[in-house]
């Protein structure tokens, strides 16, 4: 199981929880599994097969350069972040 941190603005969609354990070997899989359990969160994260813009991911505190395709291991902590522009943490990499 990996742990996914839910940003404050999305917590109302997951009954107020801060961290959720979920199966998945890539960020995409983990988020899909979460979305099955919490369809409201799913509706916010996905636009069809595509992730909505403005989201980024960090794995154990480091920005995931491959975004959704980034592979993750058991015990990794995935963080959903607002994408940040402006030359710090390039938004391109997590779109």
């Amino acid at each position: 199981m990996v742990k996914v941190w839910i940003p404050a603005l999305l917590r109302p969609l997951v009954n107020g929880q801060v961290k959720l354990a979920v199966e998945g070997s890539t960020v995409r899989e983990a988020l899909h599994n979460l979305s099955t359990t919490y369809p409201n969160l799913g509706a916010r994260l996905w636009d069809g097969q595509h992730l909505r813009p403005g989201l980024a991911f960090a794995i154990n505190g480091q920005i995931a350069p491959l975004g959704l395709s980034q592979t993750i291991n058991t015990d990794d902590e995935v963080e959903i972040l607002p994408a940040i522009g402006g030359g710090t943490l390039s938004p391109a990499s997590h779109r």
Binding site: P7, A8, L9, L10, P12, R44, G54, L55, I80, P82
Partner: peptide, 17 residues
Amino acid sequence: SLAGRSSKPSNIARHAQ
């Protein structure tokens, strides 16, 4: 915002937390 878009138009383009 991460939580979605507001129901009414606004000059606030984005809210982040």
